[in-house]
């Protein structure tokens, strides 16, 4: 049972990729891409978790012992990644708007070869 969290992370990644493959609409592709990214956040935080650990903050009441906090390095990585990937999602969505303006459709199966 100790690999359950990792397996759920892998499942979220795979189901997000499945959604990308089966999408009928570019907006659905972007949503499923966002879901797949969240799987990696779960994996990172699960690697850093310690049973009975506390957040890595050393101020205020209840300052913990330095050996008892969860891993802060993976939290730092995940934190900036979440905000920045939102803007990359915005870029993908604006590409979708432009594609719809140029071709009139958002269906990936109807967007065939690159038109010059």
């Amino acid at each position: 049972m100790s690999v359950y969290a990792y397996c759920v992370a892998g499942w979220v990644l795979l189901i997000g990729s499945f959604g990308i493959v089966r999408s009928r609409n570019l907006i659905q592709t972007v949503v499923c891409f966002s879901v797949a990214q969240s799987g990696t956040y779960l994996l990172l935080l699960a690697v850093g978790y310690e049973r009975g650990g506390v957040p890595p903050i050393f101020s205020g009441p209840g300052t913990p012992a330095p050996k008892h906090v969860v891993d802060p390095v993976v939290q730092a990585m995940t934190l900036t990644d979440i905000v920045v990937s939102a803007t990359v999602t915005a870029l993908l969505l604006s590409l979708a708007i432009q594609i719809h303006k140029r071709t009139g459709t958002l269906d990936p199966d109807q967007l065939r070869a690159l038109k010059g």
């Binding site: 903050i57 050393f58 101020s59 906090v69 390095v73 939290q75 730092a76 934190l79 900036t80």
Partner: peptide
């Protein structure tokens, strides 16, 4: 005090 901010 906030180790995550220190890392970032």
């Amino acid at each position: 005090a906030n180790v995550v901010s220190s890392i970032n």
